[in-house]
């Protein structure tokens, strides 16, 4: 209970601080804030074991933090520093930590589902007990390559859990204008169980994910979880300046009324909650200090790592 709260609180405060760093220019290029969707990353990652793997999205900071990546190294990555998770070569949309089974955030919508399916299939063929979780948004449900991945995973009973974060919009396109039929019905058509989950409550997500992981680990194949959520902030920080009008203020305020941090926080005593909050702040203070104090990569090494073994 406390762990789930710590995770959602950590993600929330990390993102709020990251937005400030975008404003101050320490983070160049902006970010896709995960604010409002924290319960999904927290619940999904809490159900994974140490040998499991995940793939993430352009809105991926929450997944990476929930999996246990060092916030200092993630922040350093967003700032393009040599100490970053990817040595400053990936940035916000590509954070990866292979030591933790984070096979990378992917900037192409719908691309990672088939990568996760291949990784999970490979692990099984090597006799390992690995389950893969792959995150994607409602927009990805219209990418043919992801639908192809559903087919391969169901056909070959691959131990992968498809986690759809339905935040209502593909950038500015509402789900109702983009998706014919239903999201879960599409998944069920491939012969895998599909459930709609309250994506604002980390415990509900964890419960559904525990069932999905157990099923995958038992060799019974993929599960699809549609986690219904709401993106509290912009699609991308550029929207802070662009002032797009695709969501009404009423809708935003209704959406924000079910806050994962408040929902999980209400399950703790005030004292416990305050203690976690203080712990998170000091962790993030230290992370900011490390990130801001880290070296920028040497331009002479701009193409380091282009090929394997090329440090």
């Amino acid at each position: 209970m406390t762990d789930l709260y710590r995770t959602v609180r950590l993600i929330r405060r990390f993102e709020e601080r990251a937005i400030e760093f975008v404003r101050s220019g320490e983070i160049v290029g902006g970010i896709h804030p995960y604010i409002g969707q924290e319960a999904i990353a927290a619940g999904v990652c809490a159900a994974l074991g140490p040998d499991d793997v995940l793939t993430s999205t352009h809105r991926g900071h929450g997944h990476v933090l929930a999996r246990g990546a060092d916030p200092a190294r993630l922040l350093a990555e967003l700032m393009g520093r040599e100490t970053g998770l990817n040595k400053g070569r990936g940035g916000s949309m590509h954070a990866a930590d292979f030591a933790l089974g984070i096979l990378g955030a992917n900037a192409i919508v719908g691309a990672a589902g088939s990568i996760a399916t291949g990784a999970a299939w490979a692990a099984r063929s090597q006799g390992r007990d690995t389950v893969a979780a792959t995150f994607f948004g409602d927009g990805a449900m219209n990418e043919g390559m992801l639908l192809e991945a559903f087919n391969l995973a169901a056909l070959w009973q691959v131990p992968v859990v498809f986690v759809c974060e339905n935040n209502g919009y593909a950038t500015t396109m509402p789900v109702a204008s983009a998706i014919a039929g239903s999201i879960t019905a599409r998944a069920r058509a491939f012969g895998m169980p599909a459930f709609t989950v309250d994506g604002q409550d980390p415990e509900k997500v964890l419960e559904a994910m525990n069932t999905a992981v157990a099923r995958a680990r038992a060799g019974r194949g993929p599960t699809f979880l549609e986690c219904v959520t709401y993106r509290f902030d912009a699609h991308h920080t550029f929207e802070h300046r662009a002032r797009l009008s695709y969501r009404s203020t009423e809708e935003i305020s209704t959406g924000r009324s079910r806050c994962p941090v408040e929902i999980q926080g209400a399950r703790l005593t005030a004292a416990d909650r305050a203690a976690v909050d203080a712990e998170v702040e000091s962790l993030l203070d230290a992370a900011a200090e490390v990130a801001l104090g880290s070296a920028h990569p040497d331009p002479a090494a701009a193409l380091a790592y282009l090929y394997a073994g090329g440090a």
């Binding site: 292979f98 990672a112 589902g113 990568i115 399916t117 291949g118 990784a119 490979a122 690995t130 087919n151």
Partner: peptide, 12 residues
């Protein structure tokens, strides 16, 4: 999908 599947298998 199977081209990305191969990438995922390679990562593993």
């Amino acid at each position: 999908a199977f081209t990305n599947f191969a990438t995922g298998a390679a990562l593993a």
